[in-house]
Design a protein around this nucleic acid. Structure first.
Length: 293
DNA sequence: AATCAGATCAACCGCATCGCC
DNA sequence: GGGCGATGCGGTTGATCTGAT
């Protein structure tokens, strides 16, 4: 008597998500919000299970996601929190707005764990290995964050920011359902567009992106060979001004859309990123100078 | 240039927990 | 309080990337 699967798996797609699927899911959630994950794939026209959609949204499509490498401060904080909370990744992630539990878990397993071992610290107990021989220990180069063998024996775990933790009682509730209010806020809208552009490179009237214009998911770098040396960003100086910027190898190109009455603040919930990008004043951006369109 | 090994991380799986009836 | 479905969570897998040889 096995447990029933979370969803009917026959005929469902698995593996990496395509840009089209991302588009469909994002558009659906933007239009409808999230009520029931089980129904999302059917209503959004996706051959995925609800669980997969939820994961994709939380770990990749959510507008408030922070992308890019962890900072040293974040890394230290992860170590500190892990010592207190153990492998409770979602709890740890709640201290890092924009970071996912999966991301932190992966970072721990692939980077921090190794680093602690090199330091002679047990990543589970956060204490120096018992009876460790000298050759297992290392010198830490604080400038490069690298380690090298040493005969000296560290006796304590690297500084724990216990004072800071006590002061920081703020917990971000990542379980909160995304609602309309969140999507109508300027910040979320700006984050959303940033993410959308970073994910999709922008597009005009199709769910599909131009071939070869997949944007690298790491912080606005474009993997299209023809524009690989360029980065871009979308920013919102205020509610009426949108600045889309590309940096070519020799110059920085900037487009500014000033004082439009349909500024971000008025971007309605019932509209979508698609409709935003279909906005007339952005049409002239769809030209060769801006290859992410 | 080809091959291989190790690193990385998105995605999956299955159990735990929650919340409704 | 118990049953059941939905969601959350953490461990694990495997495809892809990267660097070494």
């Amino acid at each position: 008597m096995g447990r029933q699967p979370c969803c009917e798996k026959v005929g469902l797609k698995r593996g990496p998500w395509t840009v089209d699927e991302d588009h469909r899911l994002m558009n659906f959630i933007l239009h409808n919000g999230i009520q029931c994950w089980k129904r999302v794939p059917k209503l959004a026209g996706l051959l995925r299970c609800g669980k997969s959609c939820r994961l994709r949204w939380i770990n990749y499509l959510r507008p408030d996601l922070k992308r890019g490498d962890f900072t040293e401060e974040e890394e230290d904080r992860i170590i500190q929190l892990h010592e207190q909370l153990g492998n409770r990744w979602s709890k740890i992630a709640s201290h890092f707005p924009g970071r996912t539990d999966n991301e932190i878990k992966n970072y721990w397993n692939t980077r921090i764990k190794k680093r602690l071992k090199l330091l002679g610290v047990d990543p589970i107990t956060h204490k120096p290995y018992e009876g460790t021989k000298d050759e297992n220990f290392v010198i830490i180069d604080e400038n490069t964050r690298t380690v090298s063998p040493s005969s000296s024996l560290p006796r304590t775990v690297p500084a724990i920011l216990s004072e800071e933790l006590r002061e920081d009682t703020r917990v971000v509730d990542h379980t909160k359902t995304v609602d309309e209010d969140e999507f109508t806020s300027d910040k979320v809208t700006a984050d959303l567009l940033n993410n959308y552009v970073a994910l999709c490179g922008g597009t005009t009237n199709s769910l599909l992106l131009d071939e070869g214009l997949m944007v690298h998911r790491q912080a606005g770098h474009c993997s299209n060979p023809s524009v690989s040396q360029q980065t871009f960003s979308a920013s919102f100086a205020d509610s009426n001004n949108i600045s889309l910027t590309t940096s070519a190898s020799e110059s920085v190109q900037s487009i500014r859309v000033d004082g439009h009455s349909n500024g971000v603040r008025q971007w309605p919930m019932e509209s979508s990123v698609q409709s935003f990008l279909d906005w007339d004043d952005l049409n002239y951006l769809h030209q060769a100078d801006y290859p992410f369109f």
